[in-house]
Design a protein around this nucleic acid. Structure first.
Lengths: 193, 193
DNA sequence: CTCTCCAAGGTACGTTGCGTACCCTACAAG
DNA sequence: CTTGTAGGGTACGCAACGTACCTTGGAGAG
């Protein structure tokens, strides 16, 4: 027989299996027995590594989320902002996003898990991208330097997230994205001049 | 013995029991057996009325949520806005709010339940209060008429909600509320002039 | 080369909680 | 008085989580 897997190798196999199961049936359908079976091992091996299902789910999520997209550079602040929102909207409304929402719901009342999620889902990197975007706009003379503030930079994504929480969810219509940019973000940036 | 309860009377008893249990142990602790026991009946009577636990939870939630507070009127737009946010923050971070979050998490992937929640939790009434607030500010000459736009009015509450989703939750620090008002809401309103 | 120890495998179990099935009983209406 | 319907009691099936315990492979020390 193939030699018995150990340590790192086994760990990767479990994570891969968990990711596959989540892709097929979402986080809700990711049962420990199923993951164990799929990975060709048993629950012991899993529980020796992660304390509970949620932790495994979060750990496995990174196997789905791939490299961060490069920051868009359309030449205008409006174009960049819209592009960022559109990409985020696409990601969140994909099957991929459904999994993330499932995880989020499961972690919703456990702050410890929530911070884990934050780290894995690249929310912080996202904020930095918005700051960078604003700085480019300032360099082009398109926005006042005073507009480069964290609260301003994070507002559009925050609004998009809240929009998800309110609606049934799947996908936010494009008009809303345009609205967020034209009615909130740009006035906010320009108002600082 | 007291005569056997039926129809409306029994239904109310069940809802009251469910609300009590939720108050004590949150939505997660609201098991069907417990509710039945507390109501002095059995699960049959419950399942004859609600298809599943979530539906009962949502139905019982109205027994906790009481009348809407009156809109604040501090004399300044800034004061009103801050007061609204502070009240919302208090409500959401109370035990009461914990229950609501639990319900929300449970309903998160069922659009049908989500709309039910929206109706019960009075989110729409909230938006109207913000519009009214803006109109008073316009009447006082404190804000340009062009600032009375739905997207502007809903932005602070949206930001607060997103803040909850991001953090572990319980309570958003007051500085954040001040920030939302001073860094986003007021500039947005004034920028319209 | 052998021994030893730990991680992995196998399997079964205890527990909780949802939702269902049945059958018995009170009570209201005809 | 009869009868149908809603309540009550109870037990069950089932899915999943998390745990216990024992057996076995195989890597590394001596």
């Amino acid at each position: 027989m193939g030699t018995r897997r150990r340590g790192e190798e086994l760990e990767q196999a479990i994570l891969r299996a968990a990711a596959e199961v989540m892709r097929e049936s979402g986080y809700a359908g990711m049962t420990m027995d199923r993951v164990a079976a799929r990975a060709g091992t048993n629950k012991n091996a899993i529980y020796r590594r992660w304390p509970h299902r949620a932790a495994l789910g979060i750990a496995a999520y990174r196997h789905l989320s791939d490299a961060a997209l490069p920051s868009p550079d359309t030449g205008t602040l409006r174009g960049d902002a819209l592009e960022m929102l559109r990409r985020a909207n696409e990601t969140w409304s994909s099957p991929h996003g459904a999994i993330l929402r499932g995880l989020l719901a499961a972690a919703a009342d456990d702050p410890e898990l929530l911070t884990l999620m934050r780290a894995r889902s690249g929310a912080d990197a996202m904020d930095l991208a918005w700051i960078a975007m604003l700085e480019r706009a300032v360099a082009r003379g398109e926005a006042p330097a005073a507009a480069v503030r964290p609260r301003v930079a994070t507002t559009p994504m925050m609004l998009l997230r809240a929009e998800y929480a309110m609606r049934g969810i799947p996908s936010v219509p494009d008009e809303v994205l345009v609205d967020i940019v034209d009615e909130v973000f740009l006035p906010l940036v320009r108002g600082r001049g």
